[in-house]
């Protein structure tokens, strides 16, 4: 999930009888699966939660360009380079769709970027891990985009109209990302040297657990989930989504001929799901707090790009103003 631990600002889910008429009417619309649109009345906490979740999602797409950008100049063939460039451009586009959706809630894009640049807003923990070899490009596409797809397919049914529509667009494009990633790994496993095959397993070993962390904390330590489910911002819990991801990923792992770095991973005939080991939550919270391997580097690069690009934005605006003045003078 690209948004983790989104604060709802709500301690306990309110009973309907405690709500005023407006809020009851709002909840009735949520119950009947009606989408909430920008001009509609909504509880303040619903609006704030959405701004947090959508902007965190957008920031993740934007920061998510960095681990892949790292390999753009070193892609092994021109074909792989073009594919990777297209994928990175998509991620930027996804960020833009999401910022647009957040803006419909009355928040400025500048304000959102400022929250990212000052560290006030978070982005997904996964992008604070380094991409150390070419196989990481495959593993990121397959596992990271794969985890994002599981989350985003469900989020197409989220209750806020503009967020839901952004998810529909994103899901259409995301499937290419996962398939190109998997194909990178498959090619290395089928045609590669032993060293290249080892690279694939190494990439999976390093990215497996961080990918599972993308879905956020366990349900029993996720106090905001109940409220987000009640509002239908979220449609499934963190643990449900994580299990879906694992169940669909293991057969793909087997086709590759690789293994997961989890001795407890095994098929459970009784539940019809894979059992898996305990996630290292200490590591997860540490990365969320800003102490992951690449947090500082990622943020510094983003801030630098924004600052270095300021003159381009200023020049474009100055040019437009001048053109408008010229056109106005002609009319007069």
């Amino acid at each position: 999930m690209y948004a983790q631990m989104v604060e709802t600002g709500v301690k306990t889910v309110k009973d309907r009888s405690e709500m005023g008429a407006e809020e009851q009417a709002f909840m009735a619309r949520i119950d009947e699966e009606s989408k909430i649109e920008p001009q509609d009345w909504m509880p303040d906490a619903y609006r704030k939660t959405l701004v947090r979740q959508i902007s965190q999602h957008a920031h993740s797409e934007i920061i998510g360009m960095q681990p892949e950008g790292n390999w753009l100049t070193r892609a092994p063939t021109i074909k792989r380079k073009l594919q990777l460039a297209a994928k990175i451009q998509d991620e930027c586009g996804h960020g833009q769709y999401l910022y647009s959706a957040a803006e419909t809630l009355g928040v400025g894009r500048d304000e959102l970027l400022d929250q990212l640049h000052t560290g006030k807003a978070k982005y997904s923990s996964i992008f604070n891990y380094p991409t150390l070899n070419w196989a990481d490009m495959g593993a990121v596409g397959w596992l990271v985009d794969g985890a994002a797809i599981v989350n985003q397919v469900i989020l197409q049914r989220t209750s806020y109209g503009p967020y839901s529509r952004a998810m529909v667009r994103i899901c259409k494009e995301e499937s290419f990302h996962q398939r190109q990633g998997y194909e990178i790994l498959l090619t290395m496993m089928e045609k590669g040297t032993q060293a290249q095959k080892d690279m694939v397993q190494d990439a999976i070993n390093r990215l497996w657990w961080p990918s599972l962390m993308m879905f956020g904390p366990n349900d029993d330590s996720s106090p905001n989930t109940a409220q987000s489910l009640e509002w239908k911002i979220k449609r499934k819990t963190n643990d449900e989504l994580r299990q879906m991801f694992i169940d669909q990923t293991i057969p793909q792992l087997e086709v590759l001929g690789c293994t997961a770095p989890d001795p407890d991973l095994k098929w459970n005939e009784a539940t019809g799901h894979y059992d898996f080991g305990e996630i290292n939550w200490e590591e997860f919270f540490n990365v969320i707090k800003g102490n992951g391997p690449c947090n500082k580097q990622r943020l510094a690069k983003k801030v630098n790009a924004h600052e270095q690009g300021a003159w381009v934005r200023e020049a474009a605006m100055a040019h437009a103003t001048k053109q408008q003045a010229k056109a106005a003078a002609k009319v007069a």
């Binding site: 833009q96 769709y97 647009s100 605006m317 408008q324």
Partner: peptide, 20 residues
């Protein structure tokens, strides 16, 4: 309708919309 873009003027908005 597909969404929105920020742009300095209409010409630039067309360029951004095409990219996005």
């Amino acid at each position: 309708h597909v969404g929105s873009v920020h742009a300095v003027d209409a010409t630039n908005a067309l360029e951004n919309a095409r990219e996005l």
